[in-house]
């Protein structure tokens, strides 16, 4: 029997900023199709963990691997080595990151935001990339807005463009950093529906949030962090959350 590697595997990852240990010896495995809600108060280390997992930040110790391939640091004969930029860049499209601030490129239209990285990074032809972008924008209900520049779009529409941009790279894993924070409260329902749709398509996802209610609505597994450590890791679907009392004592009750 062949062993299917985990989509994402984090082993004993640590990251300090000066004296502050932002992420402290964290290990985490995410298997295909899982939707993980990564929660914690601000300063708990969840965003730092996300930035280390996506290679935006260099961690001090530990390993990350994506579908079994090492990402960031590798251990060769017991000696740790930082991967070269090219080694890391080759794996980056596998991680579809949706930033808290979205970071759409304002000088490009919505559809061009989705086409450009496919052409530049994956070397797809313009036709192929355009077809993919049109298909994604249609799926996300944005086909009428494809030739608009980002500032002409609403917050929710921008977010969907950012999601489409990440999805176009055929990622193994989608990561969302605080997907509800930049939106009006009434749009949260829309995001929940969208994330559930993605989950129904079988997309593996990590959703970083500090809103417990939102996290339980969209994810089937909750990982809670405090002071750089994982303090809770468990299923939500079917499980009675109230019985998972390790969380009591923090303010997520």
């Amino acid at each position: 029997m062949t062993v299917v590697p985990d989509v994402l595997c984090v082993e004993q990852l640590s990251k300090s900023f000066g004296a502050l240990r932002a992420v402290d010896d964290v290990s985490l495995r995410i298997t295909r199709g899982q939707v993980v809600g990564l929660i914690g108060a601000s300063g708990s280390g969840k965003t730092t963990l996300l930035r280390c997992m996506t290679g935006l930040e260099r961690h001090d110790a530990g390993y990350v691997s994506i579908e079994g391939k090492p990402f960031g640091r590798v251990s060769v004969g017991g000696v740790d080595r930082q991967q070269t930029r090219k080694e890391m860049d080759a794996l980056r499209p596998k991680l579809g990151l949706v930033f808290q601030q979205l970071n759409l490129w304002p000088h490009l239209t919505a559809i061009e935001n989705i086409i450009r990285p496919q052409v530049v990074v994956l070397k797809r032809s313009r036709e192929e990339a355009t077809a993919k972008a049109v298909q994604l924008l249609t799926t996300l209900g944005l086909s009428a807005k494809s030739s608009e520049y980002p500032y002409a779009l609403s917050g929710g529409q921008r977010q969907r463009v950012a999601i489409a941009r990440a999805l176009a790279m055929d990622p193994a894993l989608m990561l969302f950093d605080e997907p509800t924070s930049a939106l009006d409260p009434e749009l949260v329902g829309e995001v929940v529906a969208l994330l559930r749709d993605l989950a129904a398509m079988g997309m593996t996802m990590v959703i970083v949030t500090h809103e417990m209610g939102f996290a339980t609505k969209v994810s089937d597994r909750i990982v809670a962090m405090n002071a750089g450590k994982i303090i809770f890791d468990g299923k939500t679907r079917g499980a009675d959350l109230a019985s998972n009392r390790p969380l009591a004592g923090s303010h997520y009750t």
Partner: peptide
């Protein structure tokens, strides 16, 4: 905003490609 460079790097563009595009 720093996020502009980061989002270009996150999709896999090299620093040179991020600068160019």
């Amino acid at each position: 905003p720093r996020g502009q460079f980061e989002s270009a790097r996150a999709v896999g563009m090299s620093p040179a490609q991020a600068f160019r595009h």
